[in-house]
Design a protein around this nucleic acid. Sequence first.
DNA 1: CGGCTTACTTGAGTTAGGCAAGCATGTAGG
DNA 2: CCTACATGCTTGCCTAACTCAAGTAAGCCG
Lengths: 146, 146
Amino acid sequence: MMIERALTRATYLSGRARQHERLMALSGLPLDRAAVAVLRQLAESEPLRLGELAARLSVEASHVTRQVQHLERVGYASRVPDPDDRRAQQVRLTPAGEEAFARVREASARGMQVALADWSPEELRQLASLVHRMVDDFIGRAEAEL
Amino acid sequence: MMIERALTRATYLSGRARQHERLMALSGLPLDRAAVAVLRQLAESEPLRLGELAARLSVEASHVTRQVQHLERVGYASRVPDPDDRRAQQVRLTPAGEEAFARVREASARGMQVALADWSPEELRQLASLVHRMVDDFIGRAEAEL
DNA sequence: CGGCTTACTTGAGTTAGGCAAGCATGTAGG
DNA sequence: CCTACATGCTTGCCTAACTCAAGTAAGCCG
């Protein structure tokens, strides 16, 4: 199963702090890795409750609490009480948050374009679709095991 | 560039501690994430000097020093002075280390087989080959930028 | 030899993230 | 409706995985 080695290489490499620093330098934003992950998830979905956000990122709620507090302090996210459940809060991005995410995404895509410059559009499409499907399958398995 | 999103999802997910715990439970070994990364790199190459090992993992040498000390204490790695340079040391796996890595790899592959059970062999092959190529291209770019 | 570089080590600090305990709200059974 | 248990979030505290800075030993160059 050579896929095992391929994925391990990819994921270890990209988790390095250095990659993140490159990204922040490119985008000109002072966000840490965890904050970017939250920002991204919020940008890619409707407003989410805290618990749901934690579930989608596969991390503990306590971690998300702190990251969201951070994003609030820098003005990228805001919370509104959930109308259906007074225990819960909905988190959404502010316009500034949307804009910050756009810059992150743009910087990230730019880096990839450089690295993958001589891939054909078809190959890129294929890679993206296989990877998406793989992630879905992994998440599916994780959920099935509960 | 939808590939950007696919990769970010994949890499964030796989970095989670939970994934690692699952792996350790499957393999029955008490190694932490960093140790596994070093073990893997050593298993996949000839004996390496400490600095070279750090370079291949894209981490600081000081981190590698500590990880290797750890692997030595549990009997998975050993060092020999580099014959060509008395400042340096070569790190290699012991037989116990080789065996431990084999178990990690097997556990990891098993997990993937479950998750990706209904992929065709052709799709798996394709994914692996695209991912390998992508990682090579990323490493190539990182080196080119020095 | 004297001075600069390289390979590694050690120490201290930061960040991501888990776990446990606590508080407020919701929900069901008697 | 009241007691009892479940949820959603927060806070505090701990560990792992690094990084950066300073130190030592060995090599290299005039």
